[in-house]
């Protein structure tokens, strides 16, 4: 009796979801527990208003519970929750940004800024974090979804209401900026070391 039946692979998440839909409170608690830290991380990424994030997550789960019988057998509970959180936060507060913002050319970092950054934070991660914060909000969000929460390009696109190409573009322009930014920092760092 060898293990490995492909159909079984999503069974856990799916059976948890089904149990929840059938009114299993423990399954509901489990779903909350599984996703709450990820939702908080993502919420903080798309809104600076911590109270709003908390209230939204609260409402999201209340609605989830109350409408459990009408829900589909969604295979990615995580995707479902993230998208619902995003929709609610935007509906509640933050206006959806126009797509023009994505097209804005990012200004090259001034050498002065970079030096300052070097002096203050030698740590690679801190530099990267600083660079990320200089991306557009939507680039930040897409990069957070793809490289922290491990969503696919498809999922990022669908979550952010973009077509596939635009999502890819958003991600890669952001990445490219980060990469060049880091490279530049390293070059400057080396230059100063030689002096």
């Amino acid at each position: 009796m060898e293990p490995a039946s492909d159909q079984n692979l999503n069974l856990d998440e799916l059976s948890l979801w089904k149990a929840f839909k059938a009114g299993d409170e423990v399954a509901f608690a489990e779903i909350y527990r599984l996703h709450i830290q990820g939702l908080l991380n993502y919420g903080n990424k798309i809104s600076p208003d911590r109270q709003l994030i908390q209230d939204t997550i609260h409402d999201l789960f209340i609605e989830l519970w109350n409408s459990r019988q009408r829900l589909n057998d969604t295979t990615s509970v995580k995707f479902y929750l993230f998208r619902a959180l995003r929709n609610k936060i935007f509906r509640a507060g933050r206006p959806e940004m126009s797509s023009e913002e994505d097209m804005l050319q990012l200004t090259e970092p001034s050498a002065e800024f970079l030096m300052m950054e070097n002096e203050m934070e030698s740590d690679r991660i801190d530099r990267l974090r600083a660079a990320v914060s200089r991306l557009s909000k939507r680039q930040q969000e897409a990069i957070n979804l793809r490289y922290f929460h491990d969503f696919s390009n498809d999922e990022v696109a669908s979550m952010m209401g973009l077509n596939y190409q635009s999502a890819c573009k958003l991600i890669y322009s952001g990445l490219k900026f980060l990469k060049e930014n880091i490279k530049l920092l390293i070059i400057i760092l080396l230059y100063f070391r030689e002096l």
Binding site: N8, E25, R33
Partner: peptide, 22 residues
């Protein structure tokens, strides 16, 4: 706030995947 209060603390972490028959 939920109508039928689930007085259960979420006590399980990320669900893990299973292989197969057993």
């Amino acid at each position: 706030d939920i109508q039928a209060p689930a007085r259960v603390v979420p006590f399980m972490p990320k669900v893990f995947r299973i292989a197969a028959s057993i």
